[in-house]
């Protein structure tokens, strides 16, 4: 369904370049769900946006790699063919629906823009209203003329999901769809996304910083750090037996600490700066196991019993 090979993405700020994603491989099979997990700045959202080719100058650039969608490399598509794919096959649920919905546009028009052209104009209003009702928006028909700011955060996210579903997409990309919502509505949105994926056979690329949320929705996980893949494999396997020290710290922190916000304090230090050329393992400066080799050579992803990890020290014990 989706296969990413050797992806490299840079952000441009004037004359400066910041490499956000380097040499990332990822695969997502039809009907399944993959989570991209990492801290902010790990490149997980960048990968999601790259699949839709939304990283473009002057903001940034996809420098290298292939993104194969249904067997074809999206990066070779013309602008109009890419638009067509986005219009019909890839749905996107944004992080902050309040910012993502054009404030000057009614929600009816919003959804109408992605509803298939084959629906005749006499049936469009009904189709849109039914779609919204099925997503839990009450009195949808009378609210088609409302503007985004007249809805609560949870309802806005349902509208955004409706926009994605109106396309009947094969792939759904959700970028931390619940971080901007309050705690009580988060679970509702997550179960909704999960239900839709199962019922419609949609493949899901799910971006989150939270392993416990990832486990709710996804079978596979890709752990990212400083734009590179640290570990990937079946999520239950990765969480019960993390190979990479970084994953270990992430997962261990969740299990130990009740307050999720303090999670990353468990790992001292800061991620490396996004410079062009990088030497050694990116996690080495913060890694309790790091030695001279880690600082000099970047470990390749290697298979350790069904889970791939990029680390020279898999199997070694922390000496803290």
């Amino acid at each position: 369904m989706l296969e990413i090979r050797g992806l490299r993405v840079v952000y441009l700020a004037g004359k400066r370049r910041m490499v956000a994603v380097r040499n990332v491989d990822l695969e997502l099979s039809t009907g399944s769900a993959v989570a991209l997990v990492g801290e902010s700045g790990s490149g997980k959202s960048t990968i999601a946006l790259s699949v839709m080719r939304l990283i473009r100058p002057p903001v940034g650039k996809i420098e290298a790699g292939r993104i194969e969608f249904a067997g074809e490399d999206l990066l070779t598509f013309s602008e109009s063919r890419m638009r067509d794919v986005l219009h019909k096959e890839i749905g996107y649920v944004p992080q902050d629906p309040a910012a993502a919905l054009d404030p000057l546009c009614t929600i009816g028009r919003h959804i109408n823009e992605t509803l298939s052209a084959s629906v005749p104009s006499s049936e469009r209003r009904t189709a849109i209203a039914n779609l919204l009702e099925s997503l839990g928006v009450k009195n949808a028909r009378s609210r088609l003329g409302s503007y985004p700011h007249e809805f609560s955060g949870g309802m806005q996210q349902r509208v955004a999901i409706a926009i994605a579903l109106a396309k009947h997409p094969k792939l759904l990309i959700a970028d931390e769809p619940t971080t901007a919502l309050d705690v009580t509505t988060q679970l509702g949105i997550l179960t909704l996304i999960d239900r839709l994926r199962r019922e419609n056979g949609i493949s899901l690329l799910f971006v989150t910083h939270d392993f416990s949320i990832a486990r709710l929705l996804c079978q596979q996980v890709v752990v990212l750090y400083a734009g590179e893949v640290m570990e990937k494999g079946p999520i239950n396997d990765v969480m019960t037996n993390p190979r990479h020290p970084y994953t270990k710290a992430l997962v261990g922190a969740i299990l130990r600490e009740p307050a999720p916000r303090s999670r990353l304090l468990a790992i001292p230090g800061q991620p490396p700066s996004p410079v062009d050329v990088r030497v050694g393992c990116p996690f080495a400066p913060r890694c309790p196991l790091a030695d001279a080799k880690c600082a000099k050579e970047n470990p390749p992803l290697e298979n350790y019993g069904g889970v791939a990890a990029a680390c020279w020290k898999v199997g070694a014990k922390a000496t803290q």
Partner: peptide, 10 residues
């Protein structure tokens, strides 16, 4: 943000 989202709608 909403223009990026608009682009994502194709």
């Amino acid at each position: 943000d909403h223009m990026l989202f608009e682009r994502s709608k194709g």
